Measured scan of single mutants.
Amino acid sequence: MEVVDPQQLGMFTEGELMSVGMDTFIHRIDSTEVIYQPRRKRAKLIGKYLMGDLLGEGSYGKVKEVLDSETLCRRAVKILKKKKLRRIPNGEANVKKEIQLLRRLRHKNVIQLVDVLYNEEKQKMYMVMEYCVCGMQEMLDSVPEKRFPVCQAHGYFCQLIDGLEYLHSQGIVHKDIKPGNLLLTTGGTLKISDLGVAEALHPFAADDTCRTSQGSPAFQPPEIANGLDTFSGFKVDIWSAGVTLYNITTGLYPFEGDNIYKLFENIGKGSYAIPGDCGPPLSDLLKGMLEYEPAKRFSIRQIRQHSWFRKKHPPAEAPVPIPPSPDTKDRWRSMTVVPYLEDLHGADEDEDLFDIEDDIIYTQDFTVPGQVPEEEASHNGQRRGLPKAVCMNGTEAAQLSTKSRAEGRAPNPARKACSASSKIRRLSACKQQ
């Protein structure tokens, strides 16, 4: 084909351009004929944790799935940006308080904090938690009735009371019990989460009196709706648990309003109706937990002794299953770290194939690490110290990083047969305790 000078094309009309061969290198194709290559998922490591896909996002930050490269346990990490926390009232204080509380709590029905990582340079905090497959609110939203069968609701409620009793025994008032803060594992274990607005009572406090509340409006008791200066913290949790039980068994809320002012007005009056299909035992329990006067409201001991709580409820309806993943529609909620794991395991070791967030990740503290002497050669063979940054567990980050890069360049065919977990650990520049 004859090559045409581009400067001469402006002298031709459209018809003349076609005659000189423009149609031979300008093609129009339908979008259905285009085959897009999927974007390669680059592996990203935060300390010893391999990052997966997004699980959810809230006002405080994002939650992603991660894999512990040492234990191969599935975890969830809450990623918090200090810049964003400053824009939220009491944001930083709530996060630090939640970390302090979770560090000393150990119960099967309370979410466990596994690790805390802090990135000084990017001003990011990573709260590594045990993995929960789904939230209770997500399960309720997945069915038209917006409720659980009585047998399933009873099982979840009993676990909620177990976890709540443990928190109260530790002198902690949750203040925000609701389905949105109750998570579930694949085995059906309920976990109380989000202790950001919780309050730890003084060890020598005479009672459970509280003065502040930041919980969700629909789950607040009349004493808070009416603006009382002080109130019983434990009875606030009992009320919120009662509203939660009402919601998961009926699909409704005892109090509603077009806006928060109308909602608080209705809560302050204390008038509500219980659907007739709840039955006398459940209705009596709800009335005891939603008692207007805090002094007359049920205690956890009274809830445990109630006939509806103690009764064994046979399954009359099919239980609400864990819904498919909202993004991938995966009904099994498979591990989202698998594509990243395959990338590390299947590809040659190259620095361009993975990302390490930083050479140094500070753990379990908000301060910069200490310094240790770096050896410097002298005339008599002895070495003197220069400062060298280290990880919180004493690992020399720069030395590990250099060693990792040197190993990656060394030709050794046997290394390709290593397991995925050992490869992740070798790529991680800074081991965590």
Rank of each mutant, 00 (worst) to 15 (best):
G171A: 08
N181D: 00
E138D: 07
V66W: 03
C278Q: 03
D115P: 02
P387M: 12
L341E: 14
L17I: 04
L102G: 06
T32H: 15
G135W: 03
G233R: 01
K122F: 09
L341W: 09
E374C: 13
E16C: 11
G180A: 10
N259T: 10
K96F: 04
A406S: 11
I248A: 07
E14S: 10
L285F: 05
F148K: 00
Q382V: 07
N90T: 03
I29V: 15
G288M: 09
Y131R: 01
R310P: 05
S31A: 12
L85W: 08
C73V: 13
M136P: 00
G61R: 01
E351W: 12
G268D: 13
N109V: 01
M335E: 10
A377W: 04
K388D: 10
H306L: 04
M139W: 09
Q399T: 09
S325R: 14
R301I: 15
I424V: 10
Q170K: 03
N94C: 07
S69R: 07
A410N: 10
E291N: 05
E145I: 07
T249A: 02
F264I: 03
P275L: 04
Q302K: 03
P411A: 06
V143A: 10
T336G: 07
M392C: 10
I267P: 01
D176T: 00
I360R: 03
T336A: 13
C158L: 04
L353P: 07
R106I: 15
M335C: 10
G215Q: 01
F264R: 04
A43F: 09
K122A: 08
D358A: 09
A206S: 08
I192N: 09
G10P: 08
P323D: 10
A406F: 11
L182V: 05
G257Y: 14
G394Y: 11
L353R: 14
E92S: 05
S307A: 12
L252F: 06
E293P: 04
G268R: 12
D365C: 13
G242E: 01
F231P: 05
D53H: 09
S421T: 07
N393F: 13
A225Y: 05
K108N: 09
S307G: 03
E138K: 14
H313Q: 05
T209E: 08
A389E: 13
E138R: 00
K84N: 05
L117P: 02
D352A: 05
N94Q: 08
R383C: 09
Q302E: 05
I322D: 08
K146Q: 13
M335I: 08
S325G: 05
V95H: 15
I29T: 02
R40W: 09
C151Q: 13
P281K: 09
Q399K: 04
R103E: 15
R74H: 15
E145S: 12
I322A: 13
K311V: 04
M289G: 00
L344A: 13
D5H: 07
S169L: 03
Y362L: 08
E65M: 02
E14P: 15
L167F: 06
S404N: 13
V95N: 15
E70I: 13
L386S: 12
F298L: 03
L54M: 07
I224T: 01
E374D: 05
L102T: 01
T336E: 15
M335L: 06
A206R: 15
A43Y: 15
P315Q: 10
R383T: 14
Q170R: 08
K296M: 10
A218R: 05
K48V: 09
Q214Y: 08
S193I: 08
A76S: 07
K329S: 03
S216P: 05
L285I: 05
K388P: 05
G408V: 08
